[in-house]
C-alpha cells in the first residue's frame, strides 16, 4: 500500500515548484484547517466521553443499570433491524431498475428516491401522525380495531424507514450505472437465470457499495432523533429510542447518565467511520488492481 502511494507521489513532486504554495502558506493553511477540524469535530467527540466519565467509571456504568436504558437500547436495535433490511431490498431493486434499463421518467424517479433527504425530519414524523394519529386519515379505523401505530413502535419504525430511505439506493445507482450491463448480458447469454446473474455477477461487483450504504443507513437509523421524536410519544421504557433517552436524561439534569448513553452512540459513530474507511480503501485497492491487470485477462 505505502509503496503504491509513494510511487504515485513522485511525478507530482517533480512538478511541485509551479503548482504549490510557498512553505509558510502551506503551513498556515494546514494549521487553520486542522485547527478548525479540532474545534468543530474532535472537541465535541472528546467532550462526550469526558462528560460521561466525569464522575468515574462507577457512575458511568450506573447509567446502564437502569431498565429504561436497556429498553431504549433494545428498541433502537429492533428499529434498525427492521428499517435497514427494508431499505436494502428497496435500494437493490431501485438501483437495478434505474441503472440497468432506459425508461421514461427515469430522472424524475431518481429525484423522488432522493426526496426524503431534503425533507426536514420533523416534517417526516408529522406526515405519519397525520395519517395514523387519532385525528388522522386512518385514526378512527385503527382505534376501532385497537391498533396503535403512532406513539408506538410501528410509528418509530416507519419514521426511521422514511429518513433512511435513500441511503442504500443512492450508493448503488451510480455504481451500477458505471458498471453497465455487459457482464450481466454475458451471463444471461451463457444461460444463467436472472437470480443466478444477480447473485454471481452483480452482487460481487457491488458488494463494497452495498456495505457502504448499509453502514451509513444503519448509523442514521440508530441515531435518528427529530422524526422519531414526533411519532414516539416519549413513553419511558416503551417508545424511547437511545437518542430520545439521552434527551430525557439531559433535560432531567442527569448529565452523566445522558452522556453515558450518548457515548454508546458516539462509539457507534466511530465504528461506522472505521468500517466506512476500510471499505473505501479496499475498494480503491481493487480498482487499482483492476487497472493493473490487462483488459484481455482470460479470467473475466
Amino acid at each position: 500500500m505505502s509503496g503504491a502511494v509513494s510511487s504515485l507521489g513522485k511525478p507530482v513532486r517533480r512538478a511541485q515548484a509551479g503548482t504549490t504554495e510557498p512553505a509558510w502558506v502551506r503551513w498556515a493553511l494546514l494549521t487553520v484547517a486542522l485547527g478548525f477540524m479540532f474545534l468543530f469535530l474532535v472537541l465535541p467527540l472528546a467532550a462526550v466521553f469526558t462528560e460521561a466519565l466525569r464522575k468515574g467509571f462507577d457512575a458511568y456504568f450506573e447509567a446502564f443499570k437502569e431498565p429504561d436504558a436497556w429498553s431504549a437500547i433494545r428498541l433502537t436495535l429492533i428499529t434498525a433491524a427492521i428499517a435497514v433490511p427494508l431499505n436494502l431490498v428497496f435500494g437493490i431493486a431501485a438501483a437495478w431498475a434505474i441503472a440497468k434499463y432506459e425508461f421514461k421518467g427515469k430522472a424524475f424517479l431518481t429525484t423522488l428516491v432522493d426526496l426524503p433527504f431534503s425533507v426536514s425530519p420533523v416534517v417526516a414524523g408529522l406526515i405519519y401522525v397525520l395519517i395514523f394519529g387519532a385525528q388522522g386519515w386512518l385514526g378512527p379505523w385503527l382505534q376501532a380495531h385497537d391498533i396503535k401505530i403512532v406513539f408506538a413502535v410501528p410509528g418509530i419504525v416507519l419514521a426511521t424507514v422514511f429518513v433512511t430511505f435513500p441511503f442504500i439506493a443512492r450508493e448503488l445507482i451510480p455504481l451500477m450505472q458505471a458498471q453497465g450491463t455487459e457482464e450481466e448480458q454475458a451471463a444471461i447469454v451463457l444461460g444463467a437465470t436472472g437470480w443466478q446473474t444477480f447473485w454471481r455477477v452483480t452482487l460481487p461487483n457491488i458488494k463494497w457499495g452495498l456495505i457502504y450504504g448499509v453502514i451509513l443507513c444503519n448509523a442514521r437509523a440508530m441515531g435518528e432523533f427529530g422524526a422519531v421524536s414526533v411519532v414516539s410519544g416519549h413513553i419511558r421504557g416503551q417508545t424511547n429510542t437511545m437518542p430520545l433517552h439521552v434527551e430525557i436524561l439531559y433535560n432531567e439534569y442527569q448529565s452523566v447518565a445522558a452522556f453515558a448513553v450518548a457515548s454508546l452512540l458516539a462509539l457507534l459513530a466511530l465504528v461506522t467511520l472505521v468500517i466506512k474507511s476500510v471499505v473505501e480503501w479496499q475498494h480503491e485497492r481493487e480498482l487499482r488492481a483492476a487497472a493493473d491487470t490487462p483488459p484481455e485477462n482470460p479470467n473475466n
Binding site: 486542522l34 477540524m37 469535530l41 474532535v42 472537541l43 465535541p44 467527540l45 467532550a47 462526550v48 462528560e51 451509513l216 448509523a219 442514521r220 440508530m222 441515531g223 435518528e224 432523533f225 427529530g226 437511545m242 437518542p243 430520545l244 439521552v246 434527551e247 439531559y250 448529565s255 445522558a258 452522556f259 450518548a262 452512540l265 458516539a266 457507534l268 459513530a269 466511530l270 461506522t272 467511520l273 472505521v274 466506512k276 474507511s277
Partner: peptide, 26 residues
C-alpha cells in the same frame, strides 16, 4: 491524513442529539 479524512464524515455518523448535547457542554 487518513484519520483526518475519515473524521470529516463524523457529522454524518454521529447522532444529532449527541452532537447537540456535547456542543452545549463545550
Amino acid at each position: 491524513k487518513k484519520v483526518v479524512d475519515a473524521l470529516v464524515d463524523l457529522p454524518f455518523a454521529l447522532p444529532t442529539a449527541v452532537a447537540g448535547i456535547s456542543l452545549t457542554a463545550l
